[in-house]
Amino acid sequence: MSTLLRLAWEFFKAGLFAIGGGLATLPFLYDISRRTGWFTTRDITDMIAVSESTPGPLGVNMSTYVGFHTAGVAGAVSASLALVLPSFIIILIISNFLKKYKENRVVQNAMYGIRPASVAMITYACLLVARAALLNTELFAVTGALTDLISWKAILLGIAVLASYLKFKKHPIVYILGAAVIGIVFRF
């Protein structure tokens, strides 16, 4: 029991202080690893790799992984619930505030400025994943040939996904699953 409580407490703190998404929980994980010895820094690297090849929020993947290794399924559940509890409470408070002041001029003007900032931040994140998805930076570093920098297979798939998404507008799940199959078949 005390392990479960300690797990919950450690991940509650990570959830309370890690601002800016999953990667922000990393420093907290290193700290937990150093103080408790529940897992090693090597485990954290493994966790990042697993997390990058599974769906879902990185932070929750991390807490599940650590929780399971420390105290089984009960540990996985309690660490994950503890991780999301602080933000759950904080967002409930902000959400109520927004409901109340939705018509307020200052709040509306702040949102007027925030929305384009959101668009820009998501565009930036999209550029980062585009670089990883469409370019062969590792191969380019070795050969130095510009034609090696571009992953032609990926560009073709990208055009195909874009064309069929614009034309058929199917659920994003369809394109994600389709791209996974194509990636396996054509060895991306």
Binding site: V129, A133, V161, A179, I184
Partner: peptide
């Protein structure tokens, strides 16, 4: 790894079109 290389391409395109729509 192959599946995820494919998924990353789809994510790039899907997020790109979403951002465009919202922009």
């Amino acid at each position: 790894a192959h599946a995820f290389a494919g998924i990353r391409v789809a994510v790039t395109v899907l997020v790109g079109t979403s951002v465009w729509k919202i922009a």
